[in-house]
Amino acid sequence: MRRYVRPMIPVIILYLTLLLVGLSSESRWQPVAFIMFYIALGQALNMFLGMTGYVDFGYVAFLALGSYGMALAFSSFSSLGLWVILLGFVLAIIMSSLLSLAVGAIALRLRGAYFAIATIGVNEGFRYLVEGVRLWGGSEGIIISSTMKDIFGSDLSNYISTFVADIMVFVIGFIAAFLTVYIINSRIGYALMAVREDEDAARVMGVFATKYKIMAFAMSAIFAGLIGASAWTLKLTYVFPEDVFNITYTVEAIAIVMLGGAGTLTGPIMGGLIYGFLRYYLSTVLPGFQLLVVAPLLVLIVTIFPEGVMGYVKRKVRNTRFEKYII
């Protein structure tokens, strides 16, 4: 039990601090939600990237499908009342996990960078399929504001968009962190570690590499779908394919994971915190010029901590009594 609890302590502290900062005043909730989106994104991606060493550039497709899942629940099953949100999450899970199984079964046979970039093809292909055959509203997407208002009334819909959706992202991020700890300490984790170090050797030793890879991939995809459903559809109340199938989010997610340290538990949290905070804070100080400062800062941080901020900390605390808390 301890091996699950101890590593969660820093995570719980960080999440609680964020939550309390967010709740302490009205003006701080949305900035915290903004940072939280990046943290959760990093954490979901880290489940796969950190564990297997595989990079998925088309990762954003899972967020996109999750957001479509929620939007479709609203546009097709609005008669369900409050249950429609639950259905939306279920659809998000189904759609993103189906895609991940398809991609996993086919593309995970590719190694390294070939896999990474083949998944861009999946994402872009899917996007242009949606636009090309006018699936789910085609390029015009789905807007659910009015449906939400019809079901919940104006005040409750605003409450859902500006508070409940954010809390959901918190919860999703937290569960992702917990599951990461669990996986690290389980058979899957050991198997994946073997695969990460030397895939061929692991196969020879009798590890079903593909099975475990697909498991990690599907789990990571499901969390991405849930983030898409809450942080995009529920919160922003619309889905346009152009905005959701946007590779930039994958690149941002990878950047966050690397900023914090890939494969560490607290890495994505620190990464998301640094990235989200820098962007938010600097845009309030220098509106219009924030990226001119943020970009060199990111480069500076990575040159100083090539293994990520938490990767660095993890190395520093090795053989100290904090070792068990930072994994």
Binding site: E252, I254, A255, V257, A295, L297, V299, P306, E307
Partner: peptide, 28 residues
């Protein structure tokens, strides 16, 4: 200035660096 320091670092850390450089050039 940048890339040399990342040789031997985890493969993807260079991705973060090129991401930053790309944004920086666009904003410049």
């Amino acid at each position: 200035t940048v890339i040399r320091r990342l040789i031997g670092a985890p493969e993807l850390s260079s991705l973060l660096a090129t991401f930053g450089i790309g944004i920086f050039l666009e904003e410049l």
